[in-house]
């Protein structure tokens, strides 16, 4: 049985759909984190069958809003003094900043260098976002 110890302070991202921990790890740029990060994959779960978990030690100031794109069932636990002081599920983000790129070949983002990509939520149920520039609509259901 693999044992991962608890953390005194930091963030535990639980109930990540199996296989998505690496995606989140990459998006949050955790390979450059100053503190320990535990990436736990394929953990047995009564609710999900298999799940992934990420534990980030000490750092609690990370923008996690993008996790809502992967699943709103993910649980984010904020830990202090070995206790959970806040527990919540991410919501579908209203705005996605500089994570995805517009696929419309006629969009100005296809030619301008160093452009800030921005998408605005237009349909929460369908996870539809529109490009800030060309208004092309895309479904964002994974990173």
């Amino acid at each position: 049985m693999l044992s991962i110890t608890g953390i005194k302070k930091g963030i535990v991202i639980d109930h990540i759909p199996s296989g998505y921990a690496m995606v989140i790890f990459d998006y949050l740029n955790l390979e450059e984190a100053k503190y320990s990060v535990a990436l736990i994959m394929n953990v047995c779960s009564n609710k999900m069958g298999k799940k992934d978990i990420i534990k980030i030690e000490n750092d609690v100031n990370i923008d996690l809003s993008i996790l809502g794109i992967i699943s709103t069932d993910i649980t984010i636990n904020i830990i202090d003094k070995e206790k959970i002081i806040k527990k919540y599920n991410p919501e579908i983000p209203m705005i996605i900043n500089n994570v995805i790129k517009c696929k419309n070949p006629r969009c100005v983002t296809s030619v301008e260098n160093n452009i800030f990509n921005k998408f605005n939520l237009i349909n929460e149920e369908k996870k539809e976002y529109s490009c800030e520039y060309c208004e092309d609509i895309i479904v964002v259901d994974k990173l």
Binding site: V108, C131, Y133
Partner: peptide
């Protein structure tokens, strides 16, 4: 010719 250029 590119869509969104005026916003940018």
């Amino acid at each position: 010719p590119k869509e969104g250029a005026p916003i940018l």
